[in-house]
Simulated scan of single mutants.
Amino acid sequence: MKIAILAGTRPEVVKLAPVRAALAARTGLEPVWISTEQQGALNAQALETFGITPDIRLDPPSPERTLGGRFAQIMDRLDDVLGRLEPRLVLVQGDTSTTAAGAMAGFARRIPIGHIEAGLRTFDLDQPFPEEGWRCVVGQLAALHFAPTEAAVRNLLRGGVARDRIHMTGNTGIDAVRLSGARATPAPLVNGLRRVLVTVHRRENWGPELEQVLAALVLLRDRVADIEIVFAAHANPALRGRVDAALRGQDRIRIVEPLDYLGFLSHLKSATLVLSDSGGVQEEGPVLGVPVLVLRDTTERAEAVEAGVARLIGTRTGAVVEAAVDLLTREPERLRMVRAVSPFGDGFAADRIADILSDWSPDRAPGGDQIRAAV
């Protein structure tokens, strides 16, 4: 059974690489990796890390186009390749433009959709934007929903998805940490200083929110004398320019170039604390026993907050400084968040997905008849 795996961003590559390996190990399943090149260099970096050569590589969407224009380009190119490839199933992951465009292209071609990391919701279309909208769209189109947690299952049921379409598997991002963790040794500390790792890239934080976070980092450096703040830069040039203007040359604040997956795990392993608006970091930090302060007002990964290994703190300067200082100066408080537990699975989600697909047939798939009738 030919299965098209669609990916074009670093998170998709990280979370789909274990799935590709698990499918390839099963008799009768033929994974075909289609790279949309949505993220360019970051996508290539992740493919190299996992030793993946795409079976089909599409032209990248134009950076000059709007969000909708790039989405349309990805969908148009995927429509063409899916028409030629004729897979029995299209697998998409998460909530990127590739995810939603791929699901819509597959649906229009009457090909069943499998959604990995299904059911994540904030129930606020503005946070995160556009990801919340993209995953809601896929939630209506998918024939198979691979949900990472019980909360994700409940969200899908709340959205009207039939129970027999939903499979709780865990999150494949935890598989990636399990399979790659031994290759990432902790990055050396500088002058014995404790490391505070920071990432900011969400679209909703591109405005004044970024300025508030950057101001908070300088104040945090001034308040806690034995830390080094490491800001893992994002490839977006507009964001990078503002980060450089605020932090470049600051004592005990270091900006590092965009890290590959193993490089990021290395820095995370050696961190005392991580501040991030990334969804993936909310999953990876708890596995490695690093407390996560989430630079957002809402999260689709509330399980980490409920487990006590992450805290939602927003982006206001005062709130960021207060939360970080609290954990950096009160070690018992920080240690309560250092549990090295994962509320997102045990690291074997990809095997469960492969087992499910080994027994699955598109002819008797839940929703298969509805898909064909609707089109």
Rank of each mutant, 00 (worst) to 15 (best):
V14N: 00
P286D: 01
T299Y: 05
P63R: 05
D80H: 15
V92M: 03
S62V: 10
L29P: 09
A246K: 07
L265M: 08
R301G: 06
P130E: 01
M75E: 10
A374I: 14
A17W: 00
R372C: 09
E86F: 15
T122P: 02
G314C: 04
V256H: 05
I113T: 04
M168K: 12
T36E: 08
T315A: 02
G94S: 04
L259Y: 12
F146Q: 03
D363W: 10
V287R: 01
L144C: 07
E303W: 11
I111L: 10
Q370P: 00
A4T: 08
M337T: 10
R254G: 08
A349W: 03
D59S: 15
L91K: 02
N43A: 07
R296P: 07
I113M: 03
I34W: 08
R10V: 11
P186M: 01
A46V: 11
V281C: 03
D175L: 07
I116S: 05
Q282A: 00
I5E: 00
I52E: 09
V14E: 00
L210P: 06
V230I: 14
G40K: 04
T185V: 15
R178L: 12
H234E: 02
A216I: 09
L259K: 05
D346A: 09
E117Y: 12
R194M: 04
G241V: 08
R330Y: 12
K2Q: 14
A108F: 14
V13R: 00
S342I: 06
R252A: 14
F348K: 13
D95R: 05
L217T: 07
L247F: 15
L144Y: 13
N205F: 08
R334K: 07
E150W: 12
L67S: 01
S278C: 09
V375Y: 07
R178P: 12
S361I: 10
L247E: 03
I34L: 13
G8H: 05
R10T: 09
A72D: 01
P188W: 12
L312M: 06
G367M: 04
Q370L: 15
F123P: 02
T317N: 00
A22P: 08
I356S: 03
A365Y: 09
E228C: 07
L328S: 01
F107V: 10
G159V: 05
L47H: 06
R88F: 14
L262A: 03
T315F: 06
D359S: 14
K15Y: 03
L179W: 14
T172A: 01
P188D: 04
D244P: 00
E131I: 06
K269P: 09
P60F: 10
R240C: 08
D277Y: 04
V138F: 04
T315M: 02
P148Y: 13
R194V: 05
M168F: 06
P188L: 07
A22K: 00
S276A: 11
E284N: 01
L29Y: 13
V325I: 02
I5V: 15
N205V: 13
V341C: 10
T185P: 11
V92W: 07
R158K: 15
L193D: 05
A302F: 11
L265A: 07
R88E: 15
E331R: 14
Q93Y: 14
G8Y: 09
L273M: 01
A103Y: 12
E322T: 14
A304Y: 06
Q250G: 10
T298Q: 11
T27I: 12
F129Q: 00
V325A: 00
G114W: 13
I253Q: 09
L23C: 01
F344E: 02
L156H: 11
V19W: 01
